[in-house]
């Protein structure tokens, strides 16, 4: 039997999480601005020596197989794209949180970060391969952050995975979200929402974190983005990269078809691209010495 998290407890949990670095915070703000340019991202990276060093290591890692060494940050960022810079910045300041062992879900250390990277790539591919009118880089960033609430509540779910699974099998809970709520009083989207507010994330990202399992509840303007991440999350789980006991125990909101057109062949192609891109990204980040 696990204890319920009260509103006060949740506030305390959120307070105990370190704030984002200035660079990461600024990058996430930029990501949500539709008219921002890559030059803005480059300037931001230039002003952060650690981030500059990491980005250069990544672009020069074996995974990208470049023949000549890249020494300029402009070239590195242009080559890698905004999304890789965001991944590195988040990993640098919140790597511990994302790398946490989710024992409450019976998931190993690193599983959350891998799931998030896969969901990020998948969300972006959903947008680009379906041709939906959604910012693909923002979809990536939102995919990276969508499950942050799991790191907050996992310790409270310790030992509860069999019970959660049983609640769903017996149809007492409709999905894992409902099981989390039944067990500890807070689900991972609500916990993540509180952290997203404390981190002062842009509204688009806050709404993805809160509604990625129930996109119809998101504000009208961000709804297409939330649907893209909803699909990206499901695709990551289908590809074998979930976060333990909750993997695939969520509902697909079929109304995604109002915003995103995907055929079985497009979906297969997205899954294939996710595998390839993830391998490259993971290798390059390991090469450059990330801590997860």
């Amino acid at each position: 039997m696990v204890d319920k998290i009260k509103q006060d407890d949740l506030a305390k949990i959120v307070q105990s999480i370190p704030m984002l670095s200035a660079s990461a915070s600024r990058l996430l703000q930029l990501a949500a601005q539709p008219d921002h340019e890559l030059a803005d991202v480059i300037n931001l990276v230039k002003n952060d020596a650690n981030l500059t060093a990491r980005v250069l290591k990544i672009v020069n890692s074996a995974a990208y197989g470049l023949v000549t060494k890249v020494t300029s940050i402009e070239r590195a960022v242009s080559y890698l794209g905004e999304r890789i810079v965001v991944s590195v910045a988040i990993d640098d300041c919140s790597g511990k949180l994302f790398g946490k062992e989710l024992s409450g879900y019976e998931a190993a250390s690193g599983d959350l970060w891998k799931h998030d990277l896969r969901a990020a790539i998948a969300s972006r591919e959903v947008v680009t391969q379906s041709g939906a009118d959604i910012n693909p880089e923002l979809a990536f960033t939102a995919g990276l952050l969508h499950d942050i609430g799991k790191a907050l509540i996992s310790d409270y779910l310790q030992g509860s995975a069999p019970e959660a699974v049983e609640l769903i099998s017996s149809q007492d809970s409709l999905d894992y979200l409902a099981a989390e709520e039944a067990l500890i009083g807070v689900d991972h989207t609500v916990a993540g929402y509180e952290l997203a507010k404390a981190w002062q994330l842009p509204d688009e990202l806050i709404q993805v974190i809160r509604y990625h399992h129930d996109p119809a509840q998101a504000g009208e303007e961000v709804r297409p983005l939330v649907y893209a991440v909803h699909l990206g999350d499901n695709i990551a789980m289908m590809g074998g990269f979930g976060t333990g006991s909750d993997t695939m125990r969520y509902k697909l909101d079929k109304s995604y078809t109002d915003f995103i057109h995907i055929t079985p062949n497009i979906l297969a192609s997205i899954m294939l691209t996710v595998d390839t891109e993830f391998q490259k990204l993971e290798e390059s980040m390991l090469d450059s010495g990330e801590t997860n």
Binding site: N234, M238, M248, Y250, K251, K254, T263, L267, A268
Partner: peptide
């Protein structure tokens, strides 16, 4: 060959 819950035809890759 698992599927997510309440899936539609397109997303039934497990079944396919």
């Amino acid at each position: 060959g698992a599927n997510v819950m309440d899936t539609n035809d397109t997303f039934q890759i497990g079944k396919r």
